[in-house]
């Protein structure tokens, strides 16, 4: 009927044969090199899908503008005084929102079958997860920097200077490394990237509002104040604020780091386990 003596075009059979014949199996790469290769992949994604960055920074930018100019006067007496209070908290909020994307991108890989490709390779198995941290960290730093720059443009002045602001950014980024594993677990358990986004933000939105990011908790009713005081996001916001003000709160910083380590200690093993078995 339809003899395949002519090449249909689109794949040069002779060249395909040559390509197949031409490789020896190279030695396996080291663990670090494999993880870095996945890091490179993360960077490429930031480059190709910059919308992701816009998505995660636009909400905090809107919040800064809205809260400062709409509620600032009512809450703190003047917009400039409120900006001074809210900005370190907005830094926390903006970077923490970005962590949800760790789960979303992992889920995208899973639903598209990319994870199966990686899992079928003879590579160090946690490498894809650790490598993605590198791409994540770029997103964190960008999201945080946007807020700090916006704040300075609006008149925010960190008493701790550039060093204080950078220290606060670094602390928030480290905390985010811990928190991102929670969303990675969600990303491996839920069915679609949208489901991860919805449940992720559903969790992080109220937690951020029920913290001292926006208001001084001493004005809150007792039980609420008690919750806000122990909310890790409050503690992180306090630590971030103290660094930017140039009066580091040692306890808040240590507790923030401990919470991050705790989250990683619990959720990183769950993530690697799920990644291996899904």
């Amino acid at each position: 009927m339809n003899p395949t003596t002519t090449t249909a075009g689109g794949a040069d059979t002779a060249a395909v044969r040559r390509a197949i014949a031409s490789t020896e199996r190279p030695p396996r790469p080291g663990r670090l090199s494999t993880a870095l290769t996945f890091g490179w992949r993360g960077m490429l994604k930031v480059k190709h899908v910059p919308e992701q960055l816009v998505d995660v920074t636009i909400t905090p930018v809107m919040f800064v503008l809205m809260f400062t100019y709409l509620f600032g006067g009512a809450i703190a007496g003047s917009t400039s005084a409120y900006l001074q209070y809210i900005l370190p908290g907005m830094l926390v909020m903006s970077v923490l929102f970005t962590t949800v994307y760790s789960g979303i991108s992992l889920n995208t890989d899973l639903t598209k079958g990319v994870v199966d490709r990686f899992r079928s390779l003879p590579i160090w198995r946690p490498a894809p997860l650790l490598g993605s941290l590198l791409g994540d960290s770029v997103r964190y730093v960008v999201a945080g920097t946007v807020i700090i720059v916006l704040g300075v443009a609006l008149g925010y002045r960190p008493e701790g200077g550039a060093v204080g602001a950078l220290a606060a950014l670094a602390l928030v980024v480290v905390f985010s490394f811990g928190l991102s594993w929670v969303f990675s677990v969600l990303g491996l358990l839920l069915r679609s990237p949208n489901a991860v986004m919805n449940s992720g933000f559903m969790a992080i939105f109220p937690l951020t509002f029920l913290s001292n990011v926006f208001v001084d908790p001493t004005t809150l009713p007792g039980p609420l104040e008690a919750f806000v005081d122990v909310n890790p996001i409050s503690i992180l916001a306090t630590a971030s604020r103290s660094l930017m003000q140039g009066q580091p709160d040692g306890t808040a910083i240590v507790v923030s780091l401990a919470v991050a380590a705790g989250l990683a200690a619990v959720f990183l093993p769950i993530t690697t386990r799920l990644y291996r078995s899904r």
């Binding site: 790469p29 490179w40 490429l44 490709r117």
Partner: peptide, 19 residues
């Protein structure tokens, strides 16, 4: 599958590096 958010070339280089 291959990664839809990378270019064709990047996909192949990525796998080459991983191997």
């Amino acid at each position: 599958s291959v990664d839809e958010e990378l270019t064709g070339r990047e996909n192949l280089v990525l796998l080459g590096r991983l191997l």
